[in-house]
């Protein structure tokens, strides 16, 4: 009796899957067909050839840089949050004192060699003074160029 009671639902399920199965396959085929005929969907970049026109994705995290206005002023207050947020000690914020005796940014030392471009410093900065730029051709033959000072002027505080 157990057999006969479960037989009808089994057949129903079987027949239902005979319809839904091919339909789902057709849905999959329609997706790949759309991809196949639409060249705008291609994401591959022909990199060395299209170097002039290549535009990085806005989300890309390249080298760290300081946001500066036209006169070269920055928003850094030398609070050191980025230095503390950095997981591999790539940032050294060296502060100094201005004439009024207030702590301001002296030199913002950035060790690009040990940076993993995680972006935690940008998230930690309370003043929005730093950002990751779009540079991707950053290879160099001289390791000394990887030690850089990001700020042009001392901080105003």
């Amino acid at each position: 009796m157990q057999e006969s009671s479960s037989f009808i639902p089994y057949i129903k399920r079987y027949l239902k899957r005979c319809i839904t199965g091919p339909w789902s396959l057709l849905c999959g085929l329609s997706v790949t067909f759309k991809y196949f005929i639409d060249p705008r969907r291609i994401v591959t970049e022909q990199y060395p050839e299209n170097r002039k026109t290549l535009k990085m994705h806005p989300r890309y995290r390249g080298r760290l840089e300081m946001i500066e206005d036209a006169d070269g002023n920055n928003h850094c207050t030398a609070c050191g949050m980025c230095e503390r947020a950095c997981p591999n000690a790539s940032i050294n914020v060296l502060s100094t004192k201005n004439i009024a005796g207030k702590k301001v940014l002296g030199r913002y030392v950035y060790h690009f060699a040990s940076c993993t471009q995680c972006g935690l410093c940008v998230e930690a900065c309370p003043f929005g003074a730093i950002r990751m730029n779009q540079d991707f051709e950053v290879a160099t033959t001289d390791p000394n160029t990887l030690e850089m000072i990001l700020n042009k002027k001392e901080g105003q505080g």
Binding site: T32, Y35, F36, P39, R41, I42, V43, T44, Q46
Partner: peptide, 8 residues
């Protein structure tokens, strides 16, 4: 294969 997978 490439064009199905949005490649060249």
């Amino acid at each position: 294969c490439a064009h199905v997978q949005c490649r060249l």
